[in-house]
């Protein structure tokens, strides 16, 4: 084969169409957003008018209390939804794996929330949480407990959007971890039982460590989903009350589409991506350090 033919062999170029498509669409708009983040943009006579802004947009974000607050709310929201949905997903996966008779049925039922459209999810939860007609308050009244304006208080609303997101997306974490659990080496688990491990010790020392790559992957995906979360919250609380549930995504939407502050909105988008990337890099770095003998010379003795 000539060098020319080797270079253009199918095996080398097989992914090229997809790369072009991804770079062409995502890359172009990403570059556009970055450029906008460093620009002042006005619309005059239906035309964008660009002028260089340097770090102005980012400084404006830092000086905006609502922006700082939205980052904090998002951090709480992401941490809570990731921890809860992954923990519940692991628990459900371990339970379904043990269940013999109901395994198939429970898989299908547990996946159901994930296929419901976000609009419907919001509607379902509005009907549950509504102060006057909501099922939850009716239930509390029946039990002679004081009813609450769930979406009307700041803590209640934050709690509500976390609950809705966990309800909606735990099926995805369940499915990912359950799939990984079914793929574990069954012999290693049986070997642990023969080695004297109780069911709990098998989970703690064998199943969970072997599931770690899947759990970590799920955490990443759920973290990205949490930062992007928008639709249910927009429909449930629209960021209120008192901006208590203004996630980064809601804030960006408000600035970009309502206030038409394109530079600021783009800068905030870029900042969000950078912060998320840093968070992921931090987790990976901690993991790599924990593995290295340099940081942990005693791991052999105390790893159990």
């Amino acid at each position: 084969m000539t060098a020319y033919r080797r270079l253009f062999a199918f095996s080398n170029l097989s992914t090229l169409p997809f790369l072009v498509l991804v770079i062409g669409i995502a890359g172009y708009s990403w570059v556009q957003v970055v450029v906008m983040a460093f620009s002042h943009l006005r619309i005059e006579a239906g035309q964008f008018v660009w002028s260089a802004a340097g770090w102005d947009n980012f400084i404006a974000i830092m000086n905006n209390p609502l922006a700082r607050y939205s980052i904090a709310v998002t951090a709480v929201f992401v941490a809570a939804t990731v921890i809860l949905s992954v923990a519940i997903g692991i628990g459900l996966a371990l339970l379904v794996e043990r269940s013999r008779r109901l395994a198939r049925v429970s898989q299908i039922i547990l996946l159901w929330p994930a296929i419901v459209a976000p609009v419907v999810v919001s509607l379902i939860w509005l009907l549950i949480l509504s102060p006057n007609i909501g099922v939850l308050n009716k239930l509390l009244e029946t039990l002679f407990l004081p009813s609450q304006d769930w979406l009307g208080t700041e803590i209640g609303a934050l709690f509500a959007i976390i609950l809705v997101d966990v309800w909606h997306w735990t099926p995805v974490t369940f499915l990912m971890i359950y799939t990984a659990l079914c793929g574990l080496d069954g012999e290693a688990i049986e070997a642990a039982r023969c080695d004297g491990a109780s069911e709990w010790q098998v989970i703690r020392h064998i199943k969970l460590p072997m599931l770690m790559p899947a759990i970590l992957g799920t955490v990443f995906i759920r973290a990205v989903m949490g930062v992007k979360a928008f639709d249910e919250m927009y429909l449930l609380t629209t960021g209120g009350p008192n901006n208590a549930t203004t996630l980064v995504s809601l804030h960006i939407r408000d600035v970009f589409f309502d206030q038409l502050n394109y530079g600021y909105g783009s800068a905030f988008s870029v900042l969000t991506v950078v912060l998320l990337s840093l968070a992921i890099a931090l987790v990976l770095a901690i993991r790599a350090l924990r593995r290295s003998r340099f940081l942990n010379p005693m791991r052999e003795a105390n790893s159990q």
Binding site: H205, P209, M210, E300, S303
Partner: peptide, 28 residues
């Protein structure tokens, strides 16, 4: 199995992939 005081060697060895050789042997 855990209370039978037996040790089993499996066809595919069934080693614990996340443990070193020493940890594998020390587990029980």
């Amino acid at each position: 199995p855990k209370d039978r005081d037996i040790a089993m060697v499996f066809q595919n060895y069934a080693l614990y992939p996340h443990m070193t050789v020493a940890e594998n042997m020390a587990f029980s």
